[in-house]
Structure formats: C-alpha cells, structure tokens
Design a protein around this nucleic acid. Structure first.
Lengths: 204, 204
DNA sequence: CGCATAGTTGACTACGCTCAACCCTGGTGG
DNA sequence: CCACCAGGGTTGAGCGTAGTCAACTATGCG
C-alpha cells in the first residue's frame, strides 16, 4: 500500500484518484483556490511558489518524484501558495474527503502518509540549517555533501538548471557559480560534464 | 482525543505515556541517541539544536506549547539533533512502539497527529519564505505581521529575549535591534513596554 | 542563421556581521 | 542601602561578502 502506486491502493480510493499529466510551466493550482486535492508527484518536478507584494515570486519548495504536494489540502480550506510544473510531470491527485476516509480505514495508508510528512519536515529542517551558513562556498559544500550522503557516493549530478539550485539555497546564480569555482579552486570538488565529485568529505 | 491531553487518550496509551518536567537548560535528548520517544510540549519552550563542525550550535527550531517535537522518532532510529529546554517546560513523552500501535487502532489519533505534522510543515514553509527576504526591516515586518495575523491583532508581545527572536529570523541581535528602530522611525510600528504594535498592515 | 536561455566573470554597491563601547535592569552580597 | 556584577539591549565604526548590473560565452532550438 503505497501512495505513489495507485494500483496498490484499496479500490474505493483508486476510483477517486486521478492521474494528471502536466507540462513544464503549467499551473496545478493557484493560491486562494479551494484546497480540495492533495497531490503526489510520480515523475517530474513541481515547484511551489508564492507571490510577494512586489510582484516577485518566491520559490518555497521544489517537489520531486516520490514527494507529496499541498499537504495542507488535507485540513485547510484554501491553497496558500501556487504550484507550477518545472518539468513535464505526472501527478496523482487525491480528493480530500475520499483520502481522509481511506486514511481512517487503512492504517497502513495513514502510516505511509505520516512517513512522507515526517520526511518532509526533516528536509525542511535541513534546508533551514543550511540557510544559517553565511559563507556561500561553505553552504554549497554542505549542500553537496548532504546530497551525496544518502547514496554514499561522492558524485552529485543535478537534473535541473543551476539557477534553480541557487534559488533553493537562497543564492543568486552568480553567487552559486562563484562558490562552485572557488570550491574547485580549493580542491574541494571537481566539475566535469555537469556532474560534481567531492573530495575529502568529513561529513559532519 | 487530543495528543496534548493525556486524559483524552485510550487507556493503553495513557499507561505508556509519561509526563516530564524539565528546567531551563536541561537536555531532553542528544543527537545520536536512540530515538524511541516522541514528545509533545504541554507548556514551556524547547529548542532543537545542532552542533556544527566548528563547535557552534545552531538553533533549528523552537517548539512551543501545543507543538510536537522529534517527530522523526516515529520512523527514524536516532535523533539527528539535540533538544534543550529554553524555559521550564512540561512535555508528554510517547514511546514509539506504543504510539504507532495506537495510531493504527485509533484513526482520530492518527488524524490529530497528521494535523500537527501538516501545521509544522506550514510553519517551516513560512520561516523559509521569510529567509528569502534580504532586507532586515522588511523581514522583521513580515514576521511581525505573521505573528499578529492569527489573533487578528495589531499587537505582538514576545515571551522570550530578542536575541532568540533574532536567531529564529536568521539575524544577529544587533541587526534585529536596528531593524526595529528603523521600523519605528518609519512609523510602521511603535514599541512600548516590550510590546510592539503595528500600523497600516496591508497583510499580503 | 538568429534567438533565447544558462552559465560565467568582472566591477561596484549595499547591507548584515563583527567588534566595541555604552546604558539599563535585576540579582547578589557586603 | 549601596556597590558590584552579569546579561540583554542599543548604538557606532569598519569590514566582508552576497547582491546587482553588465558584458561575454556556450548551448539548444526554431
């Protein structure tokens, strides 16, 4: 029973679920809309954005495959931010009421969702921790190590433009670029063909 | 059925739960310890911290009354950060296995917890959004409005030293101080007796 | 072959950090 | 009761670093 594999769900939920294909740039929902659907990203990438007073947009979160989206739809009435696909994506849409009912009936499903939520909290915590590192090159280095850690690897490859990575780190593209060149100059990393390998990683 | 009111819980969970009094500065758990207990803060304030390479400590999160703590204890094996009471606090300790069992048996309980988790995700999102505002006075203003909004009020009163607030905002105490005086000078706020009242709030 | 976009590099600016001094309050002890 | 001290808060001066604006290159696409 896995929220990302519709076939594994109980039939009554399968009936309620819809799968949506969205192209890059397409809008999934806008802030203020009736929040009646919770999404899971099967493939692709969706970003959550918020519009500030000064007509700029801030990227709150980038949701990749295997992550949930708009969890607030479970208990809140309206979306507090907008969702736009960064790349062509497939998302599973769970209508709120049916999902809530299924969560009550199937503890496995509830546990699955709770795991997702807890993991998301963890990743937010990591992102906030990164923001507390002022020096750009150190923040970037920490970020790279964090990405490499799970796979126990020393190689990191980005599937998205560096400017998006910069935004996630809270930097401008220029600053990220300089940070990377500096790390390379210092011998901490090497770059080739868009993939980064880290050296001497005393992962804290 | 409310996770912060032990009396409202099913008896088998009541038996498993313990309530702890901790004084300011006291340690609840340390990073690396066996993560077998999830906590809810009844009263007081507990901060989650992480130790960086350079022996400094970073405050990841300040958990107040009515919030959960160490949710990762549900599914992870070790605590990834430490918890220290900022003030004398009462916390409810839920042993992991018993809690998981109860969550499976009582959908209301599960829903309650999911609400907590979703709310926490929301608050993280807000904090992250704040961090994207560079100018200190604007970030502070947004923060104040965010705090005032729920009570539909224009008055904010801090129950903790400004230096802690500064840390949560990602500033040094000096910067926060300057930002506040600037906001006051610009007529956006007024300060008196440690409480802040905001004016002309076009809450976005 | 343009055109758009991403990435890089440079020069300059701006703003938050650091260090320092100072004020103020509360608590402690003579 | 006052002297002393500690900590929080404020203010000032100078510095460092990320942002901004700009130009240039490289790549991909119509």
């Amino acid at each position: 029973m896995n929220l990302f594999i519709p076939a594994s769900l109980p039939v009554e939920l399968q009936d309620a679920v819809t799968i949506q294909q969205i192209d890059a740039g397409q809008v999934l929902f806008q802030p203020g809309e009736q929040a009646s659907v919770l999404y899971m990203v099967e493939t692709g990438r969706v970003k959550l954005i918020r519009y500030t007073d000064g007509d700029e947009t801030v990227t709150l979160e980038v949701v990749g495959a295997g992550e949930s989206l708009a969890e607030m739809a479970l208990f809140s009435d309206v979306y507090s931010c907008g969702a736009i696909a960064e790349a062509r994506s497939r998302v599973v849409a769970y209508p709120r009421v049916e999902l809530l009912a299924a969560l009550r009936r199937y503890p496995d499903l509830a546990e699955d969702l709770m795991t997702l939520l807890v993991n998301k909290i963890q990743s937010f915590k990591v992102r906030l921790e990164l923001r507390d590192i002022r020096a750009s090159h150190e923040r970037v280095l920490r970020y790279l190590r964090y990405l490499a850690q799970p796979q126990q690897q020393t190689v990191v490859r980005f599937d998205r433009p560096l400017k998006d990575v910069a935004a996630e780190l809270g930097f401008t593209p220029e600053t990220l670029s300089r940070a990377l060149t500096r790390l390379e100059r210092e011998g901490k990393i090497t770059r080739q063909l868009g993939q980064i390998t880290l050296h001497d990683s005393p992962a804290a």
